[in-house]
Design a protein around this nucleic acid. Structure first.
Lengths: 157, 157
DNA sequence: AGGATTCACTTGACGCATCAAGTAAAGGAG
DNA sequence: CTCCTTTACTTGATGCGTCAAGTGAATCCT
């Protein structure tokens, strides 16, 4: 790497530190709330919530992985755990023998119904209520730009 | 939890999803760059960078943990690994026998010098260059508010 | 001064994520 | 039809983070 990488100026540095702090603490806060109130991780919640919104409460593993923004491997392990708890069932895809369908059970649906309100409340608390409507609009534009700069990690709309 | 937790409206939901995406992907992008170019995690970088900026390249473990926004336990494990690589030394605090001082070695300093430019470049790419000065100002205010709403996790200025 | 409490870590066990390798079905080339 | 490649996962080993328990030094309270 060349010598001449410009450092961040004072204003940029301050903003960056605030942002890093937010990035470290916000996921931690969400995980903590879910773990405390429902005993599941944020990723597990995303998986269950994704299935709960899908037609037939069923999705192909690869779609679900993309939705939850995790690797297929991670999803596979997670699905095994969720299956062990009786919240998800695996089934082979009749259309394509390579695919696996993940399907939310009734118990899994109940878990989502039980978990969602508390989680949404937490989101409202740290995100909706802490900001003005204008700030939320600004944040949306900022997040879109940053996501674009990170690259087409997959979730490109 | 009561039945009447209001759901997010369309605008809030869109923003929230963009934000979650950013939150999942930005740390991943930073970790990936550091791992690829220098073989260390973002947390390890924060630890090394923290020490490199401290007077005498030395800090008490608890201060360092607060700076890097991790638990003391996590820092202890991480410090053990960094010590094994020869980048950090532990020393008892002569002022207070309970405390441990972490001290950056010359090899550790060299590692930071070698690692920082690439990391800063990545930060500039996804953060500074992707946004306008106005947006960075907005983001700073937003991050401050969200951090406040999360609570005094420790990093309260 | 003596005993209890708090503080600042350290350690070990356990859980989850990642990475590399493996399996099986689908699709394509000759 | 056979072989090869690609796709869509699954599995096992490894490593890091967290939680609970432990250690020893400092401090507080009679």
């Amino acid at each position: 790497m060349g010598e001449e990488t410009p450092w961040l100026d004072e204003e940029e540095q301050q903003t960056w530190l605030a942002m890093v702090s937010m990035f470290v603490r916000l996921p931690a806060a969400l995980d903590a709330q879910l773990q405390r109130d429902s005993g599941i991780s944020h990723f597990e919640y995303q998986v269950l919530a994704g299935l709960s919104m899908a037609p037939g409460r069923t999705m192909r593993m690869s779609e679900l992985a993309e939705f939850a923004e995790g690797s297929l491997s991670r999803l596979s392990h997670t699905t095994s755990r969720l299956a062990k708890k009786g919240w998800v069932r695996r089934a082979p895809d009749p259309q394509d023998g390579r695919s696996t369908l993940a399907c939310l059970t009734d118990a899994g649906w109940a878990k989502v119904v039980e978990t969602a309100p508390g989680h949404v409340a937490e989101v409202r608390r740290v995100f909706v209520e802490a900001l003005t409507a204008t700030q939320r609009r600004q944040l949306r534009e900022i997040a879109t730009r940053v996501n674009g700069a990170i690259g087409p990690g997959k979730a490109c709309s």
